[in-house]
Amino acid sequence: MSEHVSINLSIDWTKAKTVVAGVDIGAVNSKVIILVDGQPYIYSQVKTRIPEESAIRAINAALDKTDLTLENIQCIVGTGCGKKQVPFAHKTISEIACGAAGAVHIWGPSVRTVLDVGGQSCKVIHVTEKSRVTAFLWNDKCAAGIGRSIETFADLVNKEVTEIGNIALRSDKSAQLSDFCAIYAQSEALDLIRSKEPLEEVIAGYHHAMAKRISTLADRAGVKKDLVIIGGLAKNQGIINSLESILKISRLAPKSEWDPALTVALGAALFADAFLLRNSA
């Protein structure tokens, strides 16, 4: 699941007016989306190691499935924390702007708040119907790495990262853990194992604590309807359920055709498309 490629074979890029790509180098995963005449043609996701190398790996993973070459892509926009390390990008745009653009494209102009919960950072973004960013709040230092921490925690209890969010849902009760810092919570969770708390309760507690940490940030920035959640953790139902209950607001449901982790990459590709159209006009 962590490394994959997906392609829409019904599209023929050779006849297209625009072929563009968005490359999102996140702290944990690197994602590429190629749009053909504004339609999603192919996307790929690989683990981020060294940003530059990961960018190349991600684009190659996508290109390998088609007869496209790098030269055929007319505009490439890099984004994500490693955006400056994408050697083949024509332009870089911040992950905040890309997240907003991607979210409005997927969920429509009613989106006002985009909560981007990634591997390393967590952002609350306010947008207009035209996907213009009006305000944002970046996590404070103590709230860094929530996405990665959940991955690490999954590792420690020998579970898959996709599995762990669902385990959290299985428990009605959740252990009370520090929602101040992911490492404190991790230490406390590990210690609960010693007192033989049920696995589900500890995992649920960990998810709840992390959701609480994110929600304090969201509350501080203010959450306006409609809310969407993007980034790697958007697929962790344990986090999402806790977040929705703490924030007392439901997010717009994910669209079946779009992986919310790809929203930022999509936004970058949309910028590339717009850029191309503007320049050719």
């Binding site: 924390c81 490693g82 400056k84 745009i93 911040s94 992950e95 905040i96 702007a97 653009a101 950072s121 035209k130 996907s131 213009r132 960013v133 009006t134 305000a135 944002f136 970046w138 910028f271």
Partner: peptide, 19 residues
């Protein structure tokens, strides 16, 4: 990089530019 991203977005918000 984190600061740069935030500052650039901040500047965009001030100027009202979409990206």
């Amino acid at each position: 990089t984190q600061f740069q991203t935030q500052l650039e977005t901040f500047v965009n918000i001030i100027t009202g530019v979409a990206s």
